[in-house]
Structure formats: structure tokens, C-alpha cells
């Protein structure tokens, strides 16, 4: 169900999971958001429900909800860890998920429990193949 009209980007330096979150790893810290594919499929994002700083999650646990005019989806942790920051800007400008999902539209920052958990995450090319099929 790939979109034929828009070219969606998947930066090579990120890791991806099949629930459509990306992870930007910097040492033991990670920044997490949703992929361009997810943002495009959801359409106009109206609301992002995020956890509180200090909460801990296991990999694959639900950490939030993303809602668009069209639909609502759960957000899942690509890796275990403790929330160190949330993107406060999403409360007033949820549409930045659509305009800049890998930059301004990030969702949470996490202190990783176990960075090796991400060894089986998808590469940009692997994720691209996954969403095109």
C-alpha cells in the first residue's frame, strides 16, 4: 500500500521496527518517533499522547497513542528503557509529525537498558522493503 505520489524518506543512520517507529541511537540514548510511512498513512495528526519522563518500558510495550483525523494507532517501544524527555511541542503542534517526523516531530528520548536489543531492528533499506510489500 505504498504511496505512489510522494517520495518518502528513510534516513540511513536510523533503525526501524515493523510497528513503524524509528530509533536514532547516540551511545546509550535513543530518540524515537514514527516513520514517514506511518505519518503518511495516518494523514493529518491531531493528537499525540506521550508517557511521563521517568517511566520505564520494555521492548514492544505500548508507550503512547497517535491520532489523526482518519484513525488512531498505538505507539510501541522499539527497545527497553527509561523515558528521559518527551517532545512537549507535540501538544500544541501535532502536525509537525507530518511535516518533519525525523526532526522536529520526534516523540521521546530514552536511556537504553540494553542497546544490543536493537541488533535485530531493520535498516533503512530493510524497512523500505517491508513497507513497499
Amino acid at each position: 500500500m505504498g504511496s505512489s505520489d510522494k517520495v518518502l524518506s528513510y534516513p540511513a543512520e536510523l533503525k526501524y521496527v515493523k510497528t513503524h517507529e524509528y530509533v536514532r541511537v547516540e551511545g546509550n540514548d535513543a530518540t524515537i518517533g514514527v516513520t514517514a510511512f506511518a505519518a503518511d498513512q495516518l494523514g493529518d495528526v491531531t493528537y499525540v499522547e506521550l508517557p511521563k519522563v521517568g517511566q520505564t518500558f520494555k521492548r514492544d510495550e505500548k508507550f503512547g497513542v497517535i491520532e489523526s483525523v482518519k484513525s488512531v494507532s498505538d505507539l510501541y517501544m522499539p527497545c527497553s528503557g527509561k523515558i528521559t524527555a518527551i517532545n512537549e511541542k507535540l501538544a500544541s503542534e501535532p502536525e509537525i509529525v507530518n511535516s518533519d517526523c525525523y526532526g522536529e516531530g520526534w516523540m521521546i528520548k530514552v536511556a537504553l537498558d540494553n542497546p544490543s536489543e536493537l541488533s535485530d531492528a531493520l535498516t533503512a533499506d530493510g524497512y523500505k522493503d517491508f513497507v513497499v510489500d
Binding site: S3, S4, D5, K6, G43, D44, V69, K70, E95
Partner: peptide, 24 residues
């Protein structure tokens, strides 16, 4: 619709565009 970015869905048995650019 398909050639102009229409996102096609099944609506009551019809293949129809739910949006082009964005609903908003």
C-alpha cells in the same frame, strides 16, 4: 484519482479517493 495522488479506499463497494493532499 490514482494518477493524481488520490488515496483509494473501498467505500460501500466503490473504489474512491479518501484524500489527495490531506483531509485538513
Amino acid at each position: 484519482h490514482r494518477e493524481n495522488g488520490g488515496r483509494m479506499v473501498d467505500f460501500a463497494g466503490w473504489n474512491m479517493p479518501v484524500q489527495y493532499k490531506s483531509i485538513v
